[in-house]
Amino acid sequence: METWKESQLKLLSYAKGIDAAYPILQRFAENLGFDYCAISVTSPRREVLLDTLRINNYPKEWNLQYDKQNFKCIDPIVAHCNHSTLPIVWEQSAFSGTPELWQALQQHGLQHGWSQAFHHEESGLCSVISLARHSCPISALELYEHFGYIFYAASHVSELFMRSMPKCPARPCHPRLSPRELEVLQLSAVGKTAYEIAKILNLSERTVNYHVKNLMDKLDACNKISAVLKAAKAGFL
């Protein structure tokens, strides 16, 4: 690895937040021969609600047009990155279905670019780094040489963003109830007495009371009615 690459990647690994990481990444992109650098973090999973992060040094007019015309919804690069971690080069063929987007890229000096995604399985986050420049198409050799560095950078951006997210409260750990305890619980919930439950389950009344006591202990309840209410709230009924 070239010394400057090693040095800048080390700096990136030391960054404590996205704001600190982006200038390092931007300098790295410039040293690789790119005019523009962009990072974004989204969540393609519908069940994960997340405000999209987007930082770049693209022309201001491009960002305004991208938002105003809602290009994100038709952007083939976004669609690719949401489902693949393979690098994608910004070529006219990739934009065959959205020629207006391709034309806008050319007008704003974003003629040649490529994007690299990293998918964080646990959180559902998709972080993307995109590099672009005015001139000189991106060769297969160039892509091969830089892929590993940018993939690592995208993974680090994802990690930094995760650290900034509010911690989700831990879900309460529900107790494990035995099949017999569940039977006693269900019958108690419909108003059956220990005597009646004993007859229905062919048990002794003493055994039924033993199960009721266990239910009260496991559900941290002071009596049978409270145990039934807590069990219903926990989803046992």
Rank of each mutant, 00 (worst) to 15 (best):
S127R: 08
K230S: 06
K10E: 13
L64C: 08
F28R: 12
S93G: 04
F151E: 12
S188I: 02
A232M: 08
I200Q: 12
S155D: 04
A21N: 07
G17Y: 01
K230E: 06
M1G: 09
I55E: 10
P44C: 14
R133H: 07
L201M: 08
K60C: 09
I88N: 01
T207K: 11
H174T: 09
L64R: 14
Y22T: 01
I138S: 04
Y66E: 10
K16G: 13
E47V: 01
T98D: 03
Y22D: 06
Y210S: 04
E61G: 07
P99N: 05
L141V: 07
K60W: 04
S226R: 14
E91G: 13
A15H: 05
V190S: 12
Y195G: 07
L9E: 08
V48I: 10
D220E: 13
M165D: 03
N70C: 07
G17C: 13
H108Q: 09
D75L: 09
Y144I: 08
L86V: 04
K192F: 08
N70Y: 00
E145D: 11
K230I: 03
E181G: 09
T193S: 15
D75C: 12
C81H: 03
A194Y: 00
S139W: 05
Y152H: 11
H83E: 15
F236L: 11
P175L: 11
W62D: 11
G191A: 10
N57V: 05
H211W: 00
N82L: 05
T52N: 10
Q186Y: 06
C168L: 12
N209P: 00
F151V: 04
C173Y: 02
